[in-house]
Design a protein around this nucleic acid. Structure first.
Lengths: 355, 355
DNA sequence: TATTGGCACTCAAAAGTGGTGATTGCTAAT
DNA sequence: ATTAGCAATCACCACTTTTGAGTGCCAATA
């Protein structure tokens, strides 16, 4: 198995004892937020060696870049590389405790299936379960297909345009018309377009040579134009909207005693520019993704981590959900929470959107 | 006039000089966040008296509860009572500078009128203009009237129910049907209901004795039931959704060097339990409301203030917008920003929703 | 050769120290 | 009623000292 091979290959770099020391150190640091010294590891680690031996091993781990000292006379803290090794090889995968699973399922079952409420609930449940800030994007199809158009007269020259796509997303917009149009005429046009466009993608519609479509003029052409624009926007913005919750949980973390680090979390959550590429990437991945701040392309968000997972039915309707917290995060719990909720969403999506 | 009487009555308590001293003190404290001493007031206040006199007056103001000393050898800071007096009687009302007005108008005119984007923009503009955290609730009608229903088959036994009310709000919900229903039949029912319910309130529908309505059975009755429930929920929850922005601005305030006070701001913004009653109250008030934390029913949110205003067309569609910040807030600017944006919204709402 | 006890060393954090200056309240003079 | 003058207060700052957790290294040990 590739898995086993990888593990063997890794043993060339870290001995089992070093791995155990690293595991204990990261776990302890996650629990206490205090740099961990050799004596502490000896006390709670249960490996039968003296603190001097552990010191030697720690020196080696530091050379290799897995741990670092905030200052000479302090214990060690994990580096980004250390966290990465921990979450990939050392951490014990746990399932979310059954009572919590039951509670979450219960909450989801009580729900009337309104997309907006549903997303909110998901964000709230994630935040509560992982005790950190959460984010959720609504399920979204890749090449959305037209499903239904509705034009409702608001007054003479303004109508409300409601567009429903096959992924169930609803897009609305006020439309100023070039001339006064009555409701009857609006209805006639919308039912015409409903027939012409049904189940088509933007591309198909644009390439159509159907004279009924290409021949549209005046306000009707205007409506079609807006419909296409809305569909394109929906396609382009894989991440349409982001539901958030639980920011307050992050404030409880001791590392945010000073404002600066906390600011980064708020910035990540408020500014799409960070999230958009990360979420898009997650959408196309599979399984729980762990992004540790400071690594590779994520230098800017040093000491903030994200645990994200795609959910939904691939190619039909999928979204991303996950949590944001300090690098020093209880990953085991976070991952199990994210994974469980994502699975639950997979099922719900399959139930609602497809067979 | 009641206004004038009140002012006269108040002059019994505070002499003109005391008022001027209080005004200078609060203004200076708002600007600098540093306790203000008698010398400072003498220097910048321009009242032709010595600092000793000012000290005497300050002692009196302290007795009366308008100012307080953080410790014996420090200057004075305003109390909640002091702030209240300041915003109601001493502060000079200013208009938002014209260039800013122009910029805001410009942003609103560029907008395609989608409610969701609109609310977001409003929150963003408020946050930016008042340099603080902002919140906005969408416009909402009191006794909403039915406008349009659309049923879209998702698969056999699930359909998407879209309900448009007269205030332009759109409500959607997935509906599990008791039996498989085809799209044609869904359409027939929705157009029937559209005729029967058009422009009616929940109350009117419930009290109707029209046999076409009371005679509905099976899944059709189920649909009607859900429509009524949705309409009732829309009526009941005056504050449906809250758009927020600009939290990051609050982090810049020096008083949030420690986390504790900041936490309160986040709590207010995240938990509806604080906001709901405040917003509902504001909705029924008129003009800009200033809520100073620690006062009366708002003890819990000590040292956080809100500047809120209702907007929209009374009885037709109205909402609340405003900002949240530290008690030590540039009220003049905040109020002018909130007032200006609220007026702008009044006009936009009138333009879109009515004559 | 790996492990260990012992020990000198380091250094951040906590506790202590004294000086500074802003500010007050009080008093006596105007 | 107002003011100048002045002693008293006390947070704040810069500085020093103390403390102790923790390290690195070395010589002894298995």
């Amino acid at each position: 198995m590739a898995e086993a091979e990888k593990q063997v290959a890794e043993e060339d770099v870290l001995t089992p004892r070093q791995r155990e020391i690293l595991r204990v150190l990261v776990q302890e640091y996650i629990d206490t937020a205090v740099p961990v010294g050799s004596a502490t590891i000896q006390r709670i680690g249960g490996l039968g060696v003296s603190s001097a031996t552990i010191r030697n091993e720690l020196a080696r781990l530091e050379e290799l870049g897995y741990v670092a000292q905030p200052h000479t006379s302090a214990g060690r803290v994990p580096t980004v590389k250390g966290y990465r090794y921990f979450v990939e090889r050392l951490m014990e995968q746990v399932e979310l405790p059954l009572p919590e699973q039951r509670m979450i399922r219960h909450q989801f079952h009580q729900l009337q299936l309104n997309l907006d409420q549903w997303m909110r609930l998901t964000a709230a449940v994630l935040a509560h379960t992982a005790r950190s800030a959460s984010l959720v994007t609504p399920p979204h199809a890749v090449n959305s297909r037209f499903r239904h158009l509705e034009l409702i007269s608001i007054h003479d020259t303004v109508c409300l345009l409601i567009l429903v796509l096959q992924d169930g997303s609803i897009h609305q917009e006020m439309l100023g018309l070039s001339q006064p149009i009555a409701q009857e005429e609006l209805s006639r046009t919308s039912s015409k377009l409903n027939t012409l466009l049904r189940n088509r993608t933007v591309r198909e519609i644009r390439e159509s040579t159907n004279p009924e479509l290409t021949g549209l003029r005046g306000w009707e052409a205007q409506v079609l134009q807006r419909v296409l624009e809305l569909m394109e926007r929906a396609d382009r913005r894989a991440v349409s909207e982001i539901y958030r919750d639980g920011l307050i949980n992050v404030l409880r973390q001791p590392e945010f005693g000073s404002i600066e680090k906390f600011r980064r979390v708020v910035e990540i959550l408020e500014h799409r520019r960070f999230l958009e590429p990360i979420l898009t990437r997650t959408l196309n991945a599979s399984g729980v993704q762990i992004i540790i701040g400071g690594e590779g392309p994520y230098e800017e968000i040093y000491d903030v981590s994200l645990v994200l997972s795609p959910y939904g039915v691939r190619g039909k309707a999928s979204g991303v959900l996950g949590i944001v917290g300090p690098t020093r995060m209880p990953y085991a719990r976070a991952i199990s929470a994210v994974r469980y909720v994502a699975h639950l969403m997979d099922n719900l999506i399959a139930e609602v959107y497809g067979e």
